[in-house]
Design a protein around this nucleic acid. Structure first.
Length: 283
DNA sequence: AAATCGGGGCT
DNA sequence: AGCCCAGATTT
C-alpha cells in the first residue's frame, strides 16, 4: 500500500460522515446516486430518507404515478432525473427481477445512468472494483498529482488511464469512497482545508502554489513593515507543517526568499509597496 | 467539444 | 453577481 493510500484510508476511517446510503440496499444506493447528480449531499439527505421510506424497492417506485414521483422529487432540481429514475424502476422491476444490475453494460443501458453513476453503483452497492471519477476525486487528484487547482471540465482518456492505475487491488470501493470524501470535506473547490489534509506533504499543488495561496488568505494582516511581512510569511510556512524548524530558521534569514515572495505578491496586485519599506493592501 | 438542464447555499 | 454541487444527454 502506498503512503498516499495509507494516509487517505486512515483519514477516511476517522472522519467519514455517517451517510444513510452507506448502509442500505443496492436500490437505495442507486436512488442516492441519481439524487446526488449535481446536487450537494446536504440537500439530498432529507429527500432520500423520505423517498426510501415511501418506495423501499424499485418495484414500489415502479407502481407510483408520474405526478407522485415529480411531487416527491420536490425542489431537488433537474427533475428529469426523477423521471429517469422512475423509468429505471419500471425496467428493473420488469426485466431484472427487481434487482439493480451489477454489470456495467446493463447499468449504462438504463436511462440517466452515465459513466460516473454506473461506476458508483458497482463500487458502493456491490463493493466491486470500478473507476469512480466524480468531481471530488478529480479535483483531489488534479491537485495532489498534477499540481493544478481544478480538473478539466470532463474526464479525458489520459485522466481515466492515470486514475485507473491508482486503484488498489484490495478494497477498491473503500478507496473510491475515501478519496471522494476527502475531496468533499477537505480538498474543496473553495477554501480547501489544507491544514487538515492527510496528504498535504506530498501535494503537488501545495508545493507549486505555496506560499502564495497561504499568504493570500491572510491578506488582511498584510499591512505593515517589511519585517512584519516577513513574520507573516514564516508564520504561514510554519502552519503548513511540511517544513522543519531548521528550514524555517533558514528561511527567516534568507532575504532572497522573502524578497521573492513579496515581489510575487506585488506583481499579483495583492499588496502595494509604500515608502520606507512598508506595504499595504491595494485601495 | 459545447450547450443544456435547477435550485439553493455560500462568498 | 457568480461559483459550486457524488452528471447525463443532446446538438
Amino acid at each position: 500500500m502506498s503512503l498516499v493510500e495509507k494516509e487517505i484510508i486512515s483519514w477516511f476511517e476517522e472522519n467519514k460522515r455517517d451517510l444513510p446510503w452507506r448502509n442500505t440496499t443496492p436500490w437505495g444506493v442507486m436512488v442516492s446516486e441519481f439524487m446526488l447528480q449535481q446536487t450537494p449531499v446536504s440537500r439530498v439527505l432529507p429527500r432520500w430518507i423520505e423517498w426510501m421510506q415511501r418506495w423501499p424497492t424499485a418495484q414500489d417506485l415502479a407502481s407510483a404515478s408520474t405526478s407522485e414521483v415529480i411531487t416527491a422529487w420536490g425542489r431537488l432540481g433537474y427533475p428529469r432525473r426523477a423521471l429517469r429514475l422512475h423509468e429505471c424502476a419500471k425496467i428493473i422491476a420488469a426485466e431484472f427481477a427487481n434487482e439493480v444490475p451489477r454489470n456495467e453494460e446493463f447499468l449504462r443501458s438504463l436511462p440517466g445512468i452515465g459513466e460516473y453513476t454506473a461506476a458508483a453503483i458497482i463500487a458502493f452497492a456491490y463493493e466491486e472494483e470500478s473507476l469512480v471519477l466524480d468531481i471530488n476525486i478529480r479535483r483531489l487528484f488534479a491537485r495532489l498529482y498534477d499540481g493544478v487547482e481544478s480538473a478539466p471540465s470532463s474526464p479525458s482518456k489520459v485522466e481515466r488511464a492515470r486514475r485507473k492505475e491508482l486503484i488498489p487491488k484490495a478494497n477498491a470501493h473503500t478507496w473510491a469512497a475515501a478519496t471522494m470524501e476527502l475531496g468533499a470535506l477537505v480538498c474543496t473547490a473553495r477554501n480547501p482545508q489544507c491544514a487538515q489534509c492527510p496528504v498535504k506533504k506530498m501535494c503537488a499543488w501545495r508545493k507549486s502554489d505555496f506560499p502564495k495561496s497561504e499568504i493570500l488568505k491572510k491578506s488582511q494582516t498584510w499591512k505593515g513593515s517589511d519585517r512584519q511581512c516577513r513574520g507573516n510569511i514564516v508564520q504561514s510556512l510554519r502552519e503548513n507543517e511540511s517544513l522543519t524548524e531548521k528550514q524555517l530558521k533558514k528561511l527567516w534569514h534568507d532575504d532572497s526568499q522573502i524578497e521573492k515572495a513579496l515581489t510575487s505578491l506585488i506583481a499579483d496586485g495583492l499588496i502595494q509597496k509604500q515608502p520606507r519599506n512598508s506595504y499595504s493592501l491595494p485601495s
